[in-house]
Each structure stands twice: as structure tokens, then as C-alpha cells.
């Protein structure tokens, strides 16, 4: 296995690990006894981005923006309707289920809720070695393997015969991480991995993920609603709104000088202890609420809430405009 990975990375060094182009994941809305399709929820709509080997891409946005669906589509838990997602040169969208099964070893996911993502009837040994057994990767005893994984995620090695309910939230998330890295993947989708954890435990888990990235040469898609978390862990960030990525580029650039009006509003709304408070800082609060992804606004999807709206915005959906280090989907940056 190790040899195959090496061959891949040598044959295509300049190409990114993951290259997503115009990806669409739409969910049909069905009505009536014949389940006629009357429309689509455009959860992910024409999304383009890439992730380099060893890189962490932060994916931020508010609830319902499609960030989780995007992550699940990459892992194969949802099916894309259109577009391309090249992973090590192979297109995940057109992959047969057999080929995908093979690729699963290289791509893993960590979910938000650390309890519901662990089978309550399996002990930790079975949970963290299930994948290894599937792929016949066990070298030496399963126990030894499980103990090594436990040590790697900072858990007591002797706890492998215990069950998920015996652990705290932070420890459960460590078990999820152990399972995710057990197959030595190249890429992990982290879907809000610390959002359900207590504040004092969040930092421990974030630090663990950062350490593992280094020691295992991992790449992450780090999905979060929390810009402060993303700003600490991700080198580059993509901001999602209503199914599309509205801005992407280096994280520090986005936070210090957001370009897209939505990114500006999002950052203005994040409390930043020690800095100016809402009301004291520049007023960029957006009006109203996010429209439904089943009937997104015409043209630019943000135009209904945008403080910088122009004539063109309701008519023409902007493409990604390149602006220095960033891609911005807004007519202002034509």
C-alpha cells in the first residue's frame, strides 16, 4: 500500500491532492404519490476549490450553507449530480462503488457528534481496528495496533476494552480521530469536530489534529461555523453561502481584509474578546436571514441581503473573480 501512495505522489507532484471543479449536489424535492420531482434543494452548487498535500482548507459558513453536504459528497456519503472531484487524479464523481471502496482507505471523516458516530455496542478495540481488519492491514496483533492508536491520540492504552459511553465528550472525539487515522489516510474531512465539546477541551482536540497533520502528513478539509477556530488551524479558507463558495484564499488575508460583502458581514459578527464590541466597531451587520436553498435568489445569491448591491447583481450570477491571492464571487471585483 505504502508503495502505491508513493508512486502517486511522485508521478503527479504539482497537481493538488484534491481538485474539485463545478461540483453540484442537489437533493430532489418530491411531491405526490408518484414522487414527482418538483424542484431541487441546491445544497452544493457549482463549487470549485483544491487542496494541496499536507494542507488544511477551512470551510466556513452558517447553518444550511451546504458545507456539511460538500464534505459528505467528497467522502461518498452523498452523490454529486455534476462536476468533477479529482482525488490523486481519480474522479470521485464517476467512480464505481468498487473503486470507491478502495479509495475509502485514503479518505476519512470525523463527525461533529462524537457519541452518535461511535457504535455503543462495540468496544474501543473493535471500533478502531474495524477498518484495518476490513482492509487486511493488521500487522501483529489487533490489540497492539489499537494500543498504538490510543497512544497516538493521547488516550490510556489499557482502555481498549471499554465502551464509548464510559468516555467523556473529548475522549470520544479522540476515539473518532483514532479510527479515522487507523487506515493511514491521506485526507480527512473534519466536520465541526470540536463544536460539541466543552470550551476547555476544544483546544486539546484542535492541538491533537494539528499534531497528527504534521506526523502523518495529512490534509484536512476543516468544516466549521466558527471562524476563530478555522483561523487557528487552516492555512487557506473558503467561505460558503447558500451552496456556493463566495470567497477563498489565505486565511489571514480573508480575516484581516475580507473582500466579499458576505465575508465582511460574517467577520463583523464574530465576537473577538479584547477587541471592539458590536456597536463600537464598523457596522457591517447583514439584514434579514438566509433564503431557502430550494429557491435561491436570481443572479448573485447574496444580493437580497447585500449592503453593496448594484444593478447587475440580481441579473447575473458572478463567476469567481481573481483578486490578488483570492477568488471572489462578487461583481465588485470584476
Amino acid at each position: 500500500m505504502a508503495q502505491i501512495i508513493q508512486a502517486d505522489s511522485i508521478s503527479a507532484p504539482p497537481s493538488p491532492l484534491l481538485d474539485v471543479k463545478d461540483l453540484k449536489t442537489w437533493f430532489p424535492i418530491q411531491r405526490g404519490i408518484f414522487s414527482k420531482i418538483v424542484g431541487h434543494v441546491r445544497a452544493v452548487d457549482r463549487v470549485t476549490f483544491s487542496i494541496q498535500k499536507g494542507e488544511t482548507l477551512g470551510l466556513v459558513g452558517e447553518s444550511g450553507c451546504g458545507k456539511t453536504t460538500l464534505g459528505r459528497t467528497l467522502i461518498g456519503l452523498e452523490t454529486a449530480m455534476e462536476g468533477q472531484a479529482l482525488f490523486n487524479g481519480r474522479d470521485l464523481v464517476t467512480l464505481s462503488s468498487r473503486e470507491r471502496r478502495h479509495l475509502r482507505r485514503q479518505m476519512q471523516i470525523i463527525f461533529q457528534d462524537p457519541l452518535s458516530s461511535l457504535n455503543p455496542r462495540m468496544n474501543i478495540l473493535d471500533i478502531v481496528t474495524e477498518g484495518i481488519a476490513q482492509f487486511k492491514m493488521v500487522e501483529g496483533g489487533r490489540e497492539d495496533h489499537a494500543k498504538r492508536l490510543m497512544a497516538e491520540v493521547g488516550l490510556d492504552k489499557e482502555a481498549i476494552y471499554r465502551y464509548p459511553h464510559e468516555f467523556s465528550g473529548g475522549q470520544r472525539q479522540r476515539i473518532n480521530i483514532a479510527r479515522a487515522i487507523s487506515l493511514r489516510p491521506d485526507f480527512i474531512v473534519c466536520d465541526e469536530p470540536v463544536s460539541a465539546l466543552d470550551v476547555s477541551v476544544q483546544a486539546q482536540v484542535i492541538n491533537l489534529l494539528m499534531d497528527l497533520r504534521k506526523s502523518h502528513g495529512l490534509s484536512y478539509l476543516f468544516i466549521s461555523h466558527d471562524l476563530s477556530v478555522v483561523s487557528n488551524i487552516a492555512g487557506r479558507t473558503a467561505v460558503m453561502y447558500l451552496g456556493t463558495i463566495v470567497e477563498q484564499g489565505p486565511t489571514s488575508d480573508i480575516i484581516e481584509d475580507p473582500l466579499h460583502p458576505y465575508t465582511k458581514a460574517l467577520i463583523a459578527a464574530v465576537p473577538d474578546p479584547g477587541k471592539a464590541k458590536i456597536g463600537e466597531r464598523e457596522e457591517r451587520l447583514v439584514k434579514g436571514e438566509t433564503p431557502s436553498p430550494a429557491a435561491p435568489p436570481s443572479g448573485c445569491r447574496f444580493h437580497t441581503r447585500c449592503p453593496d448591491i448594484m444593478d447587475i447583481c440580481p441579473r447575473v450570477d458572478p463567476p469567481d473573480f481573481s483578486h490578488e491571492t483570492r477568488l471572489v464571487r462578487c461583481h465588485l471585483y470584476k
Binding site: 477541551v201 483546544a203 486539546q204 484542535i206 492541538n207 494539528m210 477556530v229 473577538d272 474578546p273
Partner: peptide
Amino acid sequence: SIPKLTGAKGKLKAIRGQ
């Protein structure tokens, strides 16, 4: 331990234990 939006990046100062 709280991640900051602006300022210092990198490893967070975590409280040990739970």
C-alpha cells in the same frame, strides 16, 4: 485556550484534563 479570530496563531494553550 480560546481560539482568537485575530492575533497569534498556531498551537492553542489547552487546559489539561477534563
